[in-house]
Amino acid sequence: MNVEVVKEYYGKILKGSQDLKTSACCDGGGVPGHLEAAIANVHEEVRSKYYGCGIVIPSALRDCRVLDLGSGSGRDVYLISQLVGERGEVVGVDMTDEQLATAETHKDWHMRQFGYAKPNVHFLKGYLEKLDALDLEPGTFDVVVSNCVINLCVDKLAVLRGAHRLLKPGGEIYFADVYCDRRLPDEVRADPLLYGECLGGALYWNDFLPMAKAAGFLDPRLVTSRPITVENEAMRQKLGQAKFFSATYRLFKLDGLEPACEDYGQAVIYRGGVAEESQAFALDQHHTIERGKVFPICGNSWRMLAETRFHPYFDFIGDFSTHYGIFPGCASPGTALPFNAAEPSEATSSCC
C-alpha cells in the first residue's frame, strides 16, 4: 500500500475521530483513573485528532526517555510528557505533515499547562520503516510506544528492528495494534479505505509472533486485547469472515530469553511503589502480581522484572542454578488464538 494513501487518509480525509468507520482506530475502553487528569491536560484539538486503538501507556515511566512511533497529533506524546516529568523526554515520529503541524502548534501551550520551564517533547518527520535515517542514537530509549500505526507500515519487520536498535538493553516496546485471525487476501490489503481504517494492513497474529522474534524480541507478551466491530455493511462484505482484534503487546530487549516458560524455582515479591499499580503489578495478561505475595514465576518473566526498570519494585527469590522443566501450566505459544474473542456485544463497545 502506497504511503501516500495513508498520508491522504490521516492528513486530509479524516478531520477527527468521529470520521472513522470502525472501532479499529478507537480507544475501545475507558480511560484508567490514573490517566484521566493527564488526558484532560491535553489540548482539545490534539485529543480530537487522536486515532489510536488502545491505551499504550506502560507504568513506571518517571525520568524515562520514550519514543512514540506514529505520534500523529501528539496526544500520547503530551500524555507521556506528564508521566516522565520534566527530567524525562518524549520524541514523536510521524510522516504526516498535517498531524505534525497540530502537534507542534500546541507545544508551548502544553509546556505552560504542565508547568515546565522548557519543552521535554520533540517531533520528527520520518518513516517508521526507516528509523535509522533519523538523528536518533541507538540504545538510548527506555521505552518505545506505538498506537495503532505499525499495521499501516508495509515493512513491519523493519519497524520492529528499528525499535530494537533504538532501545536500551532491558528496554521495551509497548504498543497497541490491529491483528487478524487469518492472512488477508490481496484485494482486502489493497483497498484504500480498509487500509486507512487499520484493517487492510492487519497482521495475522501467528505471523506477528515469529516476526517479533526475528527482530530480536524473543518472548512477546500480550497485555490486553479486544475484538473490533465493523458496523459498515459494505466493509463487512469485503472482509468476509475475517475477525479483527486490537491487542497491546510488550516486547522486551533482553538477549537470551528462552523459547518456552522454563521453571527454575524462582519467585518474586512485588513491594509496591509503582504509583499506577499500588496493589498489584500486571506484567501481562497472565501475570498479575499481588503486592506482598510470593509469586512463583518462570525464568523469562523473572528477567523481565530483574533486568528492566521494574527491578527496584521487586524482591527476587532464587537464581538459574537448578532447572525443573517447563513451568506448570505453560501452554505452547502459537497454537491457539491468544486474544479475547468475545462477541462484540459482550466486549467493550466501540467509541465511534
Results as ranks from 00 to 15, higher is better:
Arg62Met: 10
Arg62Gln: 13
Asp63Thr: 09
Cys64Arg: 05
Cys64Thr: 06
Arg65Tyr: 04
Arg65Ile: 02
Val66Leu: 03
Val66Lys: 00
Val66Ala: 03
Leu67Tyr: 04
Asp68His: 02
Asp68Ser: 04
Leu69Ile: 11
Leu69Asn: 02
Gly70Thr: 07
Gly70Met: 05
Gly70Trp: 01
Ser71Met: 04
Ser71Cys: 15
Gly72Lys: 03
Gly72Tyr: 03
Ser73Ala: 14
Ser73Leu: 03
Ser73Gly: 14
Ser73Asp: 05
Ser73Gln: 05
Gly74Ala: 04
Arg75Trp: 03
Arg75Asp: 04
Asp76Val: 10
Asp76Lys: 01
Val77Met: 08
Tyr78Cys: 05
Tyr78His: 08
Leu79Glu: 01
Leu79Val: 13
Ile80Asp: 00
Ile80Lys: 00
Ser81Gln: 10
Ser81Ile: 02
Leu83Glu: 03
Leu83Lys: 06
Leu83Phe: 04
Gly85Met: 02
Gly85Pro: 00
Arg87Ser: 14
Gly88Ser: 06
Gly88Asn: 00
Gly88Cys: 04
Glu89Met: 12
Val90Thr: 07
Val91Met: 06
Gly92Lys: 03
Gly92Glu: 06
Val93Cys: 10
Val93Tyr: 03
Met95Ile: 14
Thr96Met: 07
Glu98Asp: 14
Glu98Pro: 11
Leu100Pro: 09
Ala101Asp: 15
Ala101Ser: 15
Ala101Met: 13
Ala101Asn: 14
Thr102Val: 15
Thr102Ala: 06
Thr102His: 06
Ala103Asn: 08
Glu104Arg: 15
Glu104Tyr: 11
His106Thr: 09
Lys107Pro: 00
Lys107Cys: 10
Asp108Gly: 05
Asp108His: 12
Asp108Ser: 14
Asp108Leu: 13
Trp109Leu: 03
His110Phe: 11
Gln113Cys: 12
Gln113Asp: 10
Phe114Val: 09
Gly115Asp: 07
Gly115Cys: 07
Tyr116Leu: 12
Tyr116Gln: 09
Tyr116His: 13
Ala117Ser: 11
Lys118His: 15
Lys118Cys: 11
Lys118Gly: 10
Lys118Arg: 15
Lys118Ile: 09
Pro119Cys: 06
Asn120Ala: 01
Asn120Gly: 01
Val121Phe: 02
His122Val: 10
His122Lys: 15
Phe123Tyr: 14
Phe123Lys: 02
Leu124Cys: 07
Leu124Arg: 08
Lys125Ala: 13
Lys125Arg: 15
Lys125Val: 07
Gly126Cys: 09
Gly126Asp: 07
Tyr127Asn: 12
Tyr127Lys: 10
Leu128Glu: 00
Glu129Thr: 07
Glu129Gln: 13
Glu129Cys: 05
Lys130Pro: 07
Lys130Ser: 14
Lys130Met: 12
Leu131Arg: 02
Leu131Cys: 05
Leu131Lys: 05
Asp132Met: 11
Asp132Gly: 11
Asp132Leu: 10
Ala133Ser: 15
Ala133Asp: 15
Leu134Ile: 10
Leu134Cys: 09
Leu134His: 07
Asp135Ile: 10
Leu136Lys: 05
Leu136Phe: 12
Glu137Ala: 12
Glu137Ser: 12
Pro138Arg: 09
Pro138Lys: 08
Pro138Val: 00
Pro138Asp: 08
Pro138Tyr: 08
Gly139Leu: 05
Gly139Met: 07
Phe141Thr: 01
